[in-house]
Design a protein around this nucleic acid. Structure first.
Length: 552
RNA sequence: GGCCCCUUGGUCAAGCGGCUAAGACGUCAGCCUCUCACGCUGAAAACAGGAGUUCGAUUCUCCUAGGGGUCACCA
């Protein structure tokens, strides 16, 4: 019996001379401080980075950083069908954009670290060492079932209402003799390598997940594929080998992996590996009509990480939002420590959500408004320019032409005790700044209806002659108030409210006329500041132009 | 369908046997105010349902329902 397995192993892997012990020596235990966590993210290079990918990545990064451990990037490119050109660079730059920097693994300039290679496609040899060992020990076997045969078996299993898959009596090649295997191989029949699962039907296993707590599940008894017919491992096998050899201590991944946990645990056991700790985090959901569903890259634009860059959400805002979803006490901490960097927060797995959160763009907007409100005008200017260079070149040209002036625009209402909180993302900037540029300026909103056209014209023409750039804000407003009373409007809104019959309106109406003429809108930040930035010539010109268009 | 996870206001969520069941976003009202934004005050709004354990259950147990995940030579 021993002989048979040995013969098959040598037949299947004639070139493999190294042993698992050799691998253990080549990738020794890490010399890290007690409690240091080694984490990784292991995306497949499909070219699409999901917003949800950010969550395990954040958790992994925090756990490693906070413990003085290692955070590494491994690329799971075992599925040649899904590989996309340039995807690895996209992955690295996307995560880097959100402040996730790896200590080890795949980088833009090749691998970094002694536990590599870090792309699974380059680790075939390593997997084969362990595969051969499993065959030798009777824990794996070649399976020559064709796709059609497998479909056939599945159909029968469905008819009998038993668990589909290759296992026990359903697995024809499970206990083949050496001669049979040799003959099939000589014939050139393709095969996969399957686990000879030691699991029993009806067996149960218990396990403790770091966030979910104690779990009990069916034991795995399916002879899962370890090596595909091209010799490349499946995710499951690669996961066990890689995370062991890379000395990963904590595997953080989405909840969708929970159901394959029994298989993974079994693999670690048959390979004589110590299993890592697992953190299965809940999926990000999306409200769809009356029910929830997984945030989907096909239906939801916000599922793509690139969406947030396009929309112009500041990196810091997205990081804040992710943290508020990840740790329920983060928001509270942030309110108490508005100025501290996110890194100062003590992230704990105990405060992680057990159920799936619904993705909430409104909340993101709020978080983002707060973070932008806390930025300096210089910072806003820098970020707006960076964003518009890529996503609104026309606006970029205008804003970058006179950077000091642009900074003044963002200065408005920013240094007050109660700073303005009206920008959630940079894509809103166009509507926020367009009236500062003649090429974009147009009167979009109507003049107030309660002011007669004649009065409107009066306001515009008379204001031209009293406007002085030298005024301070108080003087400026005094002039508006004087103009108001000259034309029969109340200087204080309260006066008008108390005695509406005495006035045509109040000072607010006067400024509204001016506001619409100068900004084209009924809503704007502080008018005085806006006029200062536009300059007298521009202000007068706009007042004239507006006055000319009024038909009495 | 099997197995697994989840279930407090519209959303995110505190709670860990005894509370008028926090807070945040959103909504609404009021105040402030030359518009908007900010800020302030207030309001509406929740323990999925049913059994049990207990002097007492949002909290512990079981059942039901609902939602989600997973059952590949994809990860």
């Amino acid at each position: 019996m021993e002989d048979k397995n040995l013969l098959i192993a040598n037949l299947l892997f004639p070139d493999i001379t190294q042993t698992p012990e050799d691998m253990e020596k080549r990738f020794p235990e890490r010399a890290l401080a007690e409690g240091a966590k080694v984490t990784r993210i292991a995306p497949s290079p499909t070219g699409f980075v999901h917003f949800g990918n950010l969550f395990p990545a954040f958790v992994s990064e925090r756990l490693a950083r906070q413990s003085g451990g290692v955070f590494l990037l491994r690329i799971e490119d075992t599925d040649s069908q899904r590989r996309v050109e340039g995807a690895v660079d996209t992955i690295i730059s996307s995560f880097a954009h959100y402040g996730l920097v790896f200590d080890e693994g795949v980088t833009a300039n090749g691998d970094s670290g002694i536990y590599g290679p870090y792309s699974q496609s380059q680790r075939a040899f390593i997997y084969h060492v362990f595969a051969k060992d499993l065959v030798e020990r009777g824990l794996a076997y070649p399976c020559f079932l064709t796709k059609e045969e497998l479909e056939d078996i599945r159909a029968q299993q469905e008819a009998q209402k038993v668990l589909p898959g290759c296992y026990g009596r359903w697995s024809r090649y499970r206990d083949c003799g050496f001669e049979t295997v040799k003959q099939l191989i000589d014939e050139g029949k393709p095969y996969v390598l399957r686990l000879r699962s030691p699991g029993k039907e009806g067996g149960r296993i218990t396990f403790t997940d770091v966030v979910k707590g104690k779990l009990e599940m069916d034991e795995n008894y399916v002879d899962q594929v370890l090596l595909k017919s091209d010799g490349i491992p499946t995710y499951h096998f690669a996961h066990a080998v890689d995370d062991h050899l890379m000395r990963v201590t904590h595997v953080v991944r989405g909840e969708e992996w929970l159901s394959s946990l029994p298989l993974h645990l079994q693999l670690f056991r048959v390979l004589n590996f110590k299993a890592p700790k697992y953190l299965h985090i809940s999926l990000l959901m999306k409200q769809d009509g009356g029910s929830k569903r997984k945030l989907s890259k096909r239906h939801d634009p916000e599922a793509a990480l690139t969406y947030y860059r396009q929309q112009g959400y500041p990196v810091r805002a997205v990081r804040e939002y992710v943290m508020t979803l990840l740790n329920s006490n983060y928001e509270e901490w942030r309110m108490q420590n508005p100025a501290l960097p996110l890194e100062d927060f003590k992230f704990t797995t105990a405060k992680m959500a057990h159920s799936g959160s619904l993705f909430d763009l409104q909340k993101l907007d709020d978080v983002s408004k707060n973070t932008i409100a806390a930025m300096s005008a210089a910072e806003v200017t820098k970020q707006v320019l960076d964003w518009s260079r890529d996503f609104d070149p026309k606006l970029h040209a205008l804003l970058s032409a006179d950077r000091a002036r642009t900074e003044k625009i963002f200065e408005i209402g920013r240094n007050d005790a109660k700073p303005r909180k009206d920008i959630a993302k940079w894509s809103e900037i166009r509507g926020y700044t367009d009236f500062f540029f003649d090429s974009l300026f147009e009167i979009k909103d109507a003049f107030p209806e309660n002011v007669s056209p004649a009065d409107t014209k009066q306001i515009l023409t008379r204001y031209k002659s009293i406007y002085s750039e030298k005024d301070d804000p108080q003087q400026w407003f005094e002039r508006v108030k004087e103009l108001a009373s000259d034309l029969g409007f109340a200087q204080k809104p309260k006066d008008y409210k108390n005695n509406p019959q005495l006035y045509k309106g109040h000072v607010g109406d006067i400024s509204m006329v001016l506001r619409v003429a100068v900004t084209g809108k009924t809503k704007s930040p502080d008018l005085f500041s806006i006029m200062q930035i536009l300059g007298k010539d521009c202000v007068i010109q706009r007042l004239c132009s507006a006055a000319n268009k009024i038909k009495e």
